[in-house]
Design a protein around this nucleic acid. Structure first.
Lengths: 407, 407
DNA sequence: ACGCTTTGTCCGACGAACGAACTAAGACGA
DNA sequence: TCGTCTTAGTTCGTTCGTCGGACAAAGCGT
């Protein structure tokens, strides 16, 4: 319901009837409740269509807020967004480093509080906190971040601790999924049924949105597009396969290629230290923009592989919208966007039926943090049955059946 | 609900409570209704768990039936299945050829009637007819088969005509999706949330099942796995891209490679006529089984590409089950199965969390026709809100907004 | 035989959605 | 200017699915 209003931007009750299939009676009561809660406001009248003029409705963007926190190697980004997904306040801090989990949680809670207070918003209007971190995470019970070199956090009940420290509901997800949802809420994707976000940070992932809800797959690891094969005889990847996009075209590969080119490495001022892939990637992009052909060539080679992966994703999911987002696309999206767009225009399988709308996120650098906030908006405002059913914890062990003894 | 009973095979009311999350009260009333309708029967008692013994429930397989029709170049296959998805009767006939659509519809209706009568089942117990055909079809309105060389059928309202001629509800879908649903109903996949069927006929496609319902994508063309790229520098495909699996590893590619090997072409008795790809593919498989190394090598090369495509699919969707099905796997599945299974065991990205269960369909040759019947079972017995929401026909054109004039 | 546990049903309550009748507000012709 | 027509939106009473809680049935253990 709210999702339909959000998608339309501005819509009348009659519009909602047509869009949702509900009766006028139902729409009437639901809309009144939303207006009473302050989530929706009437903002004017439409032209007459022969009778009474329609009253137009919009989300009341400043009625609720959500906090998004992106926890990454590089640092922690905090954003506060309104109901429309627009960023109201933002701060960045250094990463967690080697501090104790409990200490870090305390720091985060203090910074979230400061963020909200800095714009003078009543804490009661903040719906919750969306925590986003890269890589596979086990939402199941307890929650632990399992990526390498964060052993301290394993089995640490981060969401519960953070819920207590901030007294806000906490939800969490991975960066790509969050970014996709963020685009869905704030990126003007509108009411598209099937969209995806290609997220490129240090690795490459994709977040999938089906009918307005996130698709997570069997174990929450859907969208692992970084390990799509684009060359069956390509180099080995740490994942065990050959020719993965990430190895051939990820930021690390781009930086490695640039470092191997001595002339380029010098002129672009690459650090050569293996830890600062992201800053070297930015340096390569700057060199390309300055017009250095070797830098541009390296990026375009990467873009062509990414484009092939994008096509694969689009063909499998029958995508309608694809958004490029994440830090790396924030830096070098200008190279990737035309290549991906061209590839899909030429080779998307169902292009006769519809094209894939390829876009560059308008806020690629903070997409994940915004997505964290969107995660909250989604979970608090969109009831579950409007989208996909919860995964049933099917068929508990049934005691052994006896040979049928009764009727 | 019925889907849960089907998935479990045999389950008690208490089991249903745990599996669905509903209350005992609700389960009680729903189950009574199902028993009254004859869809479910009580079939015995379970061991005691300390108190009263549970009454076990099962689908009443012979209470309802469904017809599946697979329309293909090669011919038309008709199956009649029971509620469990088991085939009760089956016939095959020559293809439509060049006859007029109206004539073909009449013939099909007569053959369906004969099929039902041949096993003496009351027509009232037949829920409907699922029509399956290869390639993209426009379910929207009117429905027309658009594949090449069937122009006569374009804009012909096939489902309506068939509904009238058979007085059965008709649903339709493409072969891969239908096959996936067929495996879900009859293949003992159980309650897996995310499964896919790799369908190899003349081309290669995949059908996707998410939480028991089919996923069709933005325009009904999801699962176009034949045009996944496995070699960015590979040969061109008719779809416009390079290195598609279909070109490198599809049956046509296998047959072409075999024909190019003069020794093999002779010993395997290949026809060399470009029209009989499927019979030549079968001949290659027979040769491989006889132990001819060149034939086996060709098939295994194909299998390795298919396996890579399967991994890509599994990584993107985070699959739990993958079934190999369709005529080509019916013939040569014994080569493909171990290769695909091995690839996913070694390189599936989330293998730490769970493996992908790779299987060969037990009825690969008739999978699509069975799937057509499953399509009917699904549409008649599983209410929509249990799965994905209907695509909203969102936001009808709103009359232009005036500058806000009211509050 | 008596309690205790587990399974399954019955009943009243509640909320979501609907159909139909009704009011509100504008267009349009006589 | 006044009725009539059309479209927008509300109110009321009903249906239906689900829940909570009380209760009956069937088995176990001592």
């Amino acid at each position: 319901m709210l999702d339909v209003i959000r998608a339309a931007g501005t819509i009348s009750r009659v519009g909602l009837i047509n869009a949702t299939g509900f009766t006028g009676a139902t729409i009437s009561t639901v809309v009144r409740k939303l207006i009473d809660e302050g989530l929706v406001v009437e903002t004017g009248r439409a032209e007459s269509t022969g009778g009474k003029r329609r009253v137009l409705l919009q989300l009341n963007h400043s009625s609720r807020y959500a906090v998004g926190v992106h926890l990454d190697h590089a640092g922690i980004t905090y954003v506060l967004t309104n109901l429309g997904g627009s960023v109201v306040a933002r701060i960045s801090r250094a990463g967690a480093g080697t501090a104790e989990p409990q200490t870090v949680v305390g720091r985060m809670a203090a910074e979230v509080k400061g963020l909200i207070d800095s714009v003078g918003i009543d804490h009661k209007r903040v719906l919750g906190l969306g925590l986003v971190s890269p890589g596979p995470l086990s939402t199941s019970t307890g929650m632990g971040l399992t990526p390498p070199a964060m052993r301290k956090w394993e089995d640490f009940p981060l969401n519960q601790a953070l819920e207590q420290a901030t007294s806000l509901p906490v939800v969490l997800d991975n960066d790509a999924t969050a970014a996709a949802l963020g685009e869905h809420w704030s990126g003007g994707i509108g009411g598209t049924a099937i969209s995806a976000a290609l997220y490129m940070g240090t690795g490459i992932g994709a977040g999938l949105i089906i009918n307005g809800i996130t698709y997570r797959g069997g174990s929450g690891n859907a969208g692992e597009i970084g390990h799509i094969c684009v060359d069956a005889n390509g180099p080995e990847c740490w994942c065990g396969a050959r020719g993965c996009v990430e190895v051939l075209a990820g930021p690390a590969a781009v930086v490695a290629a640039a470092r191997a080119d001595a002339a380029l490495a010098g002129s672009a001022g690459l650090t050569g230290r293996s830890r600062s892939v992201s800053s070297d990637f930015a340096a390569v992009s700057r060199a390309a923009r300055r017009g250095e052909p070797s830098a541009l060539a390296i990026l375009e080679r990467s873009a062509r592989y990414i484009a092939v992966a994008a096509r694969t994703l689009a063909n499998i999911m029958d995508l309608e919208v694809l958004v490029l987002t994440g830090p790396s696309f924030a830096i070098a999206g200008w190279v990737y966007l035309p290549v991906v767009r061209d590839e899909l225009d030429r080779t998307f399988f169902s292009r006769a039926a519809h094209n894939v709308d390829v876009r560059l996120s308008r806020s690629a650098a903070t997409a994940s943090a915004i997505g964290g906030a969107a995660l909250v908006l989604q979970s608090e405002l969109v009831p579950l049955h409007e989208g996909l059913r919860l995964p049933d914890n099917l068929a508990d062990s049934e005691p052994a059946a006896l040979p049928a003894s009764g009727a």
